[in-house]
């Protein structure tokens, strides 16, 4: 407890916990509802009043302790029928793989390209450096929608429509990572790099053997944000991926919704499949999310 800050007293703290807990429950309810609806037995999805605990969970102990394994197995099969249908009746798996492939490729591509550029901007001297950096960074202020139409024309001219590159290449071109990593690399002292250069190490060796290992926390942060942005991006893939076999997960979900407008059990199963990977990544790498936000955000 920090006594000098507001809400120092014991009653104040109780009050705080009560409000925060209630608020957190409200905030997490939609995500909870995704998973609950996804696991609900199909005939109970639209139950009135709604069932807040799906039958698989609420009936597991009574049925199993009564020895009715057969009945329980039936409930399990029923409850996961939406998921099974996603697997057998839609292209969900394909969309998942598309998103995963593009996300991983974007992440590693960005890490390589941006760390190289950032290394040069942070540690090297060359004529026009400031100007080049300024040109790249100033485009960060321009909303992506401005580029939508011309980018579509370029992708179409290059014959990349319905090709993973149509999504991947524009993601690799974003400059946020250059900015983030340059900020990070500027804080790394140059002594070791100087020493290596005197020992005759090449520019590439200095970058690869010294800079990259030192920049690991920055790289982890950028990697996570890149993967999240790629995994969740919607508008651009919706425009350039028009064949079902090339949909990314969010685009696939939209199509799924268009075709099953009121089958909420099925829709929520799909949403759950899309949400789980990001939730896992977040829970595993929480500190990098926070570091990334504070690093890329406000200065002073």
């Amino acid at each position: 407890m920090k006594p000098l800050q507001p809400w120092g007293s014991r009653a104040g703290h109780f009050f705080l916990y009560a409000i925060l807990t209630f608020w957190a429950v409200v905030s997490l309810l939609p995500l909870y509802w995704v998973f609950t609806t996804a696991m609900q037995m199909p005939n109970q999805v639209m139950a009135v009043p709604p069932k807040f605990v799906p039958a698989v969970i609420s009936q597991a102990i009574p049925l199993l302790s009564a020895g009715e394994t057969e009945a329980f197995r039936e409930i399990v099969t029923e409850s996961f029928s939406h998921l099974t249908y996603l697997y057998t009746g839609t292209r969900m798996v394909r969309w998942f793989i598309n998103s995963l492939f593009i996300g991983i490729a974007a992440t590693f591509g960005i890490l390589l390209l941006d760390s190289m550029a950032a290394f040069s901007f942070a540690k090297k001297e060359f004529p026009g450096k400031e100007f080049l950096f300024w040109v790249m960074i100033s485009t960060m202020m321009i909303p992506g929608q401005v580029m939508l139409v011309p980018m579509f024309m370029i992708v179409r001219e290059l014959g990349l429509m319905n090709h993973p590159f149509a999504v991947l290449l524009p993601q690799l071109s974003m400059v946020f990572g250059v900015f983030l990593l340059r900020q990070f690399m500027k804080t790394i002292p140059s002594d070791m790099m100087e020493a290596a250069r005197i020992d005759g190490a090449s520019g590439w060796a200095i970058y690869w053997r010294i800079m990259l290992p030192l920049a690991k926390p920055g790289l982890a942060t950028l990697g996570i944000f890149t993967f999240m942005a790629s995994w969740n991006s919607f508008l651009w893939p919706l425009i350039v991926m028009q064949r079902p076999e090339w949909f990314t997960l969010p685009v696939g979900l939209k199509t799924l919704q268009d075709q099953n407008l009121v089958n909420y059990g099925l829709l929520m199963s799909g949403a759950a499949v899309a949400a789980i990977p990001m939730i896992i990544v977040f829970l595993l790498f929480q500190q990098y999310f926070i570091k990334g936000l504070t690093l890329g955000g406000v200065k002073g």
């Binding site: 905030s27 969740n232 919607f234 979900l253 939209k254 899309a274 990001m278 939730i279 977040f282």
Partner: peptide, 11 residues
């Protein structure tokens, strides 16, 4: 409080 932010807007 951050968790909903990592799920996509689509979800």
């Amino acid at each position: 409080f951050y968790l909903p932010t990592v799920a996509s807007t689509v979800v």
